[in-house]
């Protein structure tokens, strides 16, 4: 079983508004409402790929119920810790004329020490049956990076591999626990530690630094994915994605890589399949998921090069 942890899930409302203008009325040509949060997106894609997935995290009222209902409808088992507050709703405006995606995000409901303790206990019980844990996305108000680090430690202590796709502070706290895979969330980030991640050289330095504490370090800049594992280092170019694909840039990549890692893929193959999953998901009608056949069809569009 693969256990995904989404501490701050959301409902994502995506509006397609060609020629979007600020400060005036806009008509949406299409509105999509989907469960969101990085861990949830990874869970949905892994489920499409045929894995047995349990999704856990915090779920509040209103949108939180919708998230759980949709997950269960598609066959994912849920085990969310209930919260008093309302799960957040995030908004994205996709303007195909300007080629832009504008996103508005909420912080989400606050969690209390008792909520965190309840989640930790659920997590420990479920770890017993997990072969891989994926912790992805932001922290809700009230949760500190040290909590996430504790979740990683508990899994590693039980010999369960952990994949992390989180922001810098959380990743820094969790790295000493030696997760299996780490990918920093680089959205809206220009500098990461001392590295300028807008430049290839900065990203190379970052991925090599992360590789000191993790078996598989990944940096995804949208246009290229860098992958380092021990002495092996690769660069994979990513073709320009559909606009919808930009909203969930990392999620299909993580799901594709985990799928390949569980199958025992070599490092270069893990990277190749991750990028193929990204291309395939971005081209799907919702920009969200890709089937195994879709991924296979995109494999030839990926070129893995050794990283100098």
């Amino acid at each position: 079983m693969i256990l995904t942890v989404t501490l701050n899930p959301s409902v994502d409302k995506i509006f397609r508004i060609p020629g979007f203008k600020l400060g005036t009325f806009n008509n949406a040509s299409e509105v999509m409402t989907q469960p969101g949060g990085k861990g949830i997106n990874v869970a949905m894609m892994l489920n499409v790929l045929g894995h047995d997935v349990v999704a856990m995290g915090f779920a509040g009222n209103g949108p939180g119920r919708m998230v759980q209902d949709v997950l269960r409808e598609v066959g994912i088992t849920t085990s969310f810790t209930p919260l008093e507050g309302k799960t957040r709703t995030n908004y994205a405006i996709v303007d195909s004329e300007a080629g832009t995606v504008t996103q508005v995000r909420q912080d989400g409901p606050s969690v209390t020490p008792s909520d965190l303790e309840q989640l930790r206990r659920t997590y420990e019980r479920l770890l017993d049956s997990a072969e891989m844990v994926i912790i992805a996305g932001s922290l809700p108000p009230g949760a500190e990076p040290s909590f996430c680090a504790e979740l990683v430690r508990l899994a590693v202590h039980q010999g369960v591999r952990v994949a992390l796709n989180v922001r810098r502070r959380v990743l820094a706290a969790a790295l000493p626990a030696k997760p299996f895979l780490t990918e920093p969330d680089l959205r809206s980030v220009e500098k990461y530690n001392e590295y300028d991640v807008r430049k290839h050289e900065g990203r190379v330095s970052l991925v090599r630094e992360l590789a000191r504490d993790t078996q598989l370090a990944v940096v995804n800049a949208g246009s290229e994915v860098l992958l380092v594992s021990g002495e092996e280092a690769y660069s994979i170019q990513v073709p320009a994605c559909e606009l919808l694909g930009r909203i969930r840039l990392d999620d299909a990549l993580i799901a594709g890589m985990i799928d390949s890692a569980i199958a025992g893929g070599a490092v270069s193959e893990i990277g190749r399949r991750g990028v193929a999953a990204t291309i395939a998901a971005a081209a799907s009608p919702t920009g969200q998921f890709a089937s195994r056949e879709d991924i296979e069809a995109c494999i030839e569009r990926t070129e893995v090069k050794p990283l100098a």
Binding site: V54, Q68, R72, G75, I76, T77, T78, S79, F80, P82, Q118, R121, T122, L126
Partner: peptide, 17 residues
């Protein structure tokens, strides 16, 4: 079947439940 694992533990209080 509802694929949900929400459960209680023996040491929880009735108030929490």
């Amino acid at each position: 079947m509802v694929r949900d694992l929400t459960a209680l533990t023996t040491d929880m209080s009735l108030q929490e439940a």
